[in-house]
Design a protein around this nucleic acid. Structure first.
Lengths: 124, 124
DNA sequence: TTGCTATATCGCTTAATAGTAATATAGTAT
DNA sequence: ATACTATATTACTATTAAGCGATATAGCAA
């Protein structure tokens, strides 16, 4: 297709944005093992309950996870099978990248120094 | 895998974040047709050259595109084949989602009202 | 009712980022 | 050298979002 609908494009961007937080990726990774409630996730991820709820809200709003109320508890589960494929795809790419990087370093004989990169600060 | 390395996780999140902007998705969609220089992209996307360069910098920094200098021009091309699969996957999901939504609306007999959603403002 | 537990939301601060205009840099030509 | 073109970067503003503590909401128990 030549011209992409702006609204659809914004949706795709939103979908990727939902996947662009380490904590949300951790949540999804936990949910791969099966449904979990907020309390369980909070303990597993070692962060505040408010934060977990907020991130679950984001994932839920964009359709990545679904909520099942059970008494006072709220169980979340992965609602979109594409999540599995997406994460596997990127993780695979990452593995390849790291592998070739490791090979290069091995050939070069140096230790890697890979500081966390942000979108704005461009290291030289 | 049970425990994910925080650094790798941050990389995956960064990768998805690079895909979380409509303009960057437009750029990638243009580059699917072949290498393009900054000027061409600027005209096609109808936005400022500075902005295009900045977004290309982001895409380049996270390995989604590569730069080939050619005189004063800079030609960019998609460097990671996973980009194709990722976008297709999400677009396919989106199509399914819209289709079922359309079906539901058809059965319901109402016109859709889908305002743009942000990550923070939760509509009720 | 009161108390307890689980979850969601609000208010806030801080950090990141998209966009713009202006400027810097670099290659090419004259 | 100067001029022109293409691209990258800087400085800035406005918006967005993550994280936290406090609070609200809701179900359940005594």
């Amino acid at each position: 297709m030549k011209h992409l609908d702006d609204r659809a494009l914004a949706h795709v961007a939103d979908y990727f944005r939902a996947l662009s937080e380490p904590l949300r990726l951790k949540i999804l990774n936990e949910l791969r093992r099966g449904p979990r409630n907020v309390n369980q996730l909070t303990q597993m991820l070692a962060c505040s309950q408010a934060n977990v709820s907020k991130h679950l809200g984001v994932l839920s709003r964009f359709g990545l996870v679904a909520r099942d109320a059970q008494g006072t508890a709220a169980y979340y589960r992965i609602a979109d099978p594409a999540v599995y494929e997406l994460c596997d795809l990127v993780c695979g790419r990452m593995a390849n990248h790291l592998k070739s990087q490791a090979d290069a370093l091995h050939a070069f004989g140096t230790a890697p120094a890979r500081p966390a990169r942000s979108l704005s600060a461009r290291p030289r």
